[in-house]
Amino acid sequence: MKRVTMNMLLAGLTAACLTSLSAPASAQSTLDAVKKRGKLICGVSQPTPGFAVPDSKGVMTGFDVDICRAVASAVFGSPDKVDFVPTNINTRFQVLQSGEIDILSRQTTMTFSRDNSLGLDFGPPVFYDGQGLMVHKKLNISNAKDLDGAAICLLPGTTTLQNLADFFRANNKKFESVVFENPDENRNAFFSGRCDATTSDRSDLASVRAVANNPADYVVLPETISKEPLAPVVRQGDSNWRDIVSWSVYTLIAAEEKGITKNNVDQQLSSQDPEIQRMLGVTGDFGKMIGLDNRWAYNIIKGIGNYSDVFERNLGEKTALGLTRGPNQQWSKGGLLYAPPFR
């Protein structure tokens, strides 16, 4: 009896070793994998108003969510063929690296070291943000340099912590940092007065302020202490997939520039503008070049609209966040949004 169990154990171990050794690393492209699965898997923030939050019916909405829906529309012709995975700020890159998600659309700042040491590639920035500071209004502070000696609550988010340390060091000021893993705890500590200020990307501060009992009690200081171009991220080494993500974003921007909206996209199919014709797949074979249906860009606009639609719906002045376009304006209107030509 003893021998039998021992032999079985050994056989099992050997088999396990052999199978795991012989398991080949799949060289399948991301697009093929997504198509085969029948839906996109997209990593987004843990609930953050304006960027990724379920609505009253449990449907995910938000700016980052819509970027994923744009890609899903380009691939499947439907903005709904996507599963959303809330990702932790500490493990977001690992989730992407390990292949659990196809695209990370999570308020993520594009930086040199992330682009070059993590085996990841960034798409074009979708939101030009910068780190700001929010304080209690009753402190009567108008300037971030007045915060010498203040306690500042923040999330362990990467660039945030370093930018803040750099800003205070550069100005020869000191501060006390209180770092929270969880956004809720961070907000509560700030609202309760444990901290004099909180810091994050300005868009995120607007999101924090939007959930306060009385948003008027808090002011965002005028300084922007860093550049935070937020961009979608994909795995390195799959150029076609990266192109699909990049050009889905460019489609949103170009559509706004050309005046194509969710509502008029069908009329625009008969537009005389050759670039619109190429873009919407009326003429040419752009779809084939990128490995998608020729109607891919039409599907994006039909599915979620253009950049302006996405911005105003989730972050704009009519929402709780109440953000203005700022630098996230078309280049022709003095902003930073610039889509390369569809030619």
Partner: peptide
Amino acid sequence: IAIGYPDLVMVSNTIMNQTG
């Protein structure tokens, strides 16, 4: 880490975050 005390895990997490 839940209440913002900088113990080993919190410092490690920050390092993880910054270095990737």
